[in-house]
Design a protein around this nucleic acid. Structure first.
Length: 586
RNA sequence: GCGCCCGUAGCUCAGCUGGAUAGAGUACCGGCUUCCGAAGCCGGGUGUCACAGGUUCGAAUCCUGUCGGGCGCGCCA
């Protein structure tokens, strides 16, 4: 419908140009929008106002000329000029009826489109270090990333969902050391746990599994483990030096194979836990990309060499620096430390170069907002490598702060007293968590009200929408109980009997759904869908209270049943994209 | 100090890439069930769109500055 109006307006301008009423050298962008207020018709265009200057006449006069040149057919019953020069289009109510047939025919596919067909998009999200369970901050990235990916797929993009597994690097070594020390304690030794170690209970669990499977086989005297290790911070030393020293001692004592065994015990347990957690949360991936695989294939050293050969690397203080300031970063960055180890950034350059090499049209990274300072250096590196940094979109997700009983819930990763995603899911349920996480646009700080999310009341938007769905199902159950058949074809032919204002409202909003999807997908804004669904549910509940669907008038009844079934279908489709269930009963 | 994000009703937030009288939910008050689920519906009122300039037919929306809040500025990941 919208496209149709754009077309006839474009034709009208062309006609005016050939008649000499408009300068021929302008190519207007014709914009048609849904009106906010239906008193202004169904669609409106600001065309006359944008062209007024070029045409050298008043917007309203120009609007009149445009309307005179307009070929109105196909459902448009009235066109009028309003306000400063808007052209408003009024559609006959029967113009909206087709949407019901479309929805019932297309079912689960209604709203999907080919707008993004041919575009290959990669969405990388969560990618939390496998050093501990996912916490509520990761949950937002998970729900948001999954929704963005689903939306893009719904508009025809070929979407690749990926999790980047940081299975290499110092953080993982710290985890391995933490696991080993807990293991020693379970062997009966007394150790002073490092301030910088991972303190969570899950580390005990991993140590226990290791102890159960290996017995004392990996045990070394505590005195040897701590021999020559610099003092920890509580003892007046440096906690970083302390933990690095411990890692060094432990890997030496254990040897390559046994160290790898401890390391992998931690990695496998935690990554397995993360995968399970996400799966239960309804978040799935096409690929779990291993950071370690980059070093195994020399991708990191190759990248460094490419940068060196192209003159973007220099040496200073024993380290290798990437001159990212050449591309707008605020300072240069180290990629190889003076101890010879490559930095995390070096892996990330290789990883992003790898992504672009894979040929995606767009690469989307979803990061926590605390990593925002990282964006310029990654883009700089891609540019230095001769890639197009604009193919990479980094979406920054702001923090979610939990509230319980009006009080902020405190979180701290290292001390182990964080709130995990699993705890959140257990408390409020997957549906509420998925929905609440995407209710706000990603750059908005989020207050996550736990009490609201788990309340089974009308305050809770998830329940409100799900209830609308269940209510439609309930109507059809009632129908079956009364042994009445729903004659769909009869109903579709009788849609003209739907003349109530509530029905009109519902029809218009149902027809908006594809537009909402497209805009939400390309703008990466799943919150637009949550708002839309709430409005649609509201339209339905209002309609439900105002009119009876199961009436004696069979023609009217069948038509109304078509309408509410279409509503149910759209709610189900929308919730499905958000990863929220559409229940038949509640 | 520099950089990114945010500032709209008492509270939580929309505002469709510059449009018409700035909207929802919640809270508060009152009403609606012999009938399809009251987890619902209807009615009742609130705004210096943080502030000051600028751009134009037109600004909550775009630009600049100021103020306030969050986050980030490692040879950590």
């Amino acid at each position: 419908m919208k496209e149709h109006i754009v077309k006839i307006l474009t034709d009208a301008v062309t006609k005016l140009q050939s008649d000499g009423d408009l300068p021929g050298d302008i190519t207007p962008t014709v914009m048609v929008e849904r009106t906010r207020d239906r008193a202004h018709g169904d669609f409106a265009s600001n065309l006359a106002m944008t062209l007024a200057k070029a045409a050298r006449c008043k917007p309203r006069d120009l609007a009149e000329k445009i309307i005179a040149a307009l070929n109105t057919d196909g459902g448009i019953v009235k066109v009028e000029i309003a306000g400063p020069g808007f052209i408003n289009f009024y559609l006959g109510s029967d113009a909206w009826h087709n949407v019901v047939g479309d929805i019932l025919e297309q079912g689960d596919n209604y709203g999907r489109s080919e707008a993004g067909a041919g575009q290959r998009v990669q969405v990388e999200f969560v990618s939390a270090n496998p050093t501990g369970p996912l916490h509520v901050g990761h949950g937002r990235g998970a729900a948001y990333g999954a929704a963005v990916a689903s939306l893009l797929a719904a508009v025809g993009c070929t979407v690749h969902r990926e999790y980047y597994v940081n299975d290499a690097g110092r953080q993982m070594d710290i985890l391995a050391a933490s696991v080993y020390l807990r293991y020693l304690e379970l062997c009966g030794d007394t150790v002073i746990f490092p301030a910088n170690g991972y303190q969570g209970d899950y580390v005990w669990d991993i140590g226990a599994t290791l102890h159960r499977e290996s017995g004392d086989m990996l045990r070394h005297p505590v005195s040897e483990v701590f021999a020559g290790v610099p003092d920890d911070e509580p003892a007046g030393g440096d906690k970083e030096a302390h933990i690095d020293g411990l890692i060094e001692r432990i890997s030496t004592l254990l040897g390559t194979n046994n160290y790898r065994r401890v390391f992998d015990a931690g990695l496998d347990a935690i990554l397995g836990n993360i995968r399970q957690d996400l799966k239960e949360f309804g978040v799935t991936y096409d690929e779990w990309f291993s950071e370690r695989s980059l070093s195994d294939t020399n991708a990191v050293t190759d990248c460094i060499k490419r940068l060196q050969d192209s003159g973007h690397i220099y040496e200073q203080d024993g380290a290798l620096w990437f001159r990212s300031t050449d591309y707008g970063d605020e300072k240069d960055r180290v990629i190889v430390r003076d101890n010879g180890q490559t930095t995390y950034f070096a892996s990330d350059i290789a990883y992003h170069a790898n992504k672009l090499e894979r040929g995606y049209d767009r690469v989307i990274d979803i990061w926590g907002a605390d990593h925002h300072g990282y964006v310029p250096r990654v883009k700089a590196a891609l540019q230095a490598l001769g890639d197009d940094p604009d193919r990479l979109d980094v979406l920054l997700v702001q923090f979610a702060v939990l509230y319980r009983g009006g009080e902020k819930v405190q979180m701290s990763t290292r001390s182990g007293e964080f709130v995990t995603l699993r705890e959140l899911r257990n408390e409020v349920g997957n549906d509420a968590a998925r929905f609440f996480y995407v209710m706000r646009k990603c750059e908005q700080h989020m207050d996550f009200d736990l009490d609201l999310a788990k309340s089974q009341s009308n305050d809770n938007p998830v329940y409100y929408i799900q209830y609308a769905h269940a209510r439609v199902c309930s109507v059809f159950r009632q129908l079956a109980e009364k042994k009445i058949e729903w004659d769909k074809d009869c109903g579709l032919k009788a849609l003209g009997t739907l003349a109530e204002s509530h029905e009109d409202e519902l029809l218009v909003n149902l027809s908006r759904y594809p537009e909402v999807l497209e805009s939400a997908a390309f703008n990466h804004e799943p919150h637009a869908l949550t708002h839309y669904l709430r409005e649609l549910a509201n339209d339905f509940h209002t309609y439900y209270n105002a009119h009876t669907f199961i009436t004696d008038d069979a023609t009217l009844r069948n038509a109304r049943l078509c309408l509410i079934e279409a509503t149910r279908q759209v709610i189900a489709n929308g919730l499905q994209l958000l990863g929220v269930h559409a229940p038949d009963t509640m």
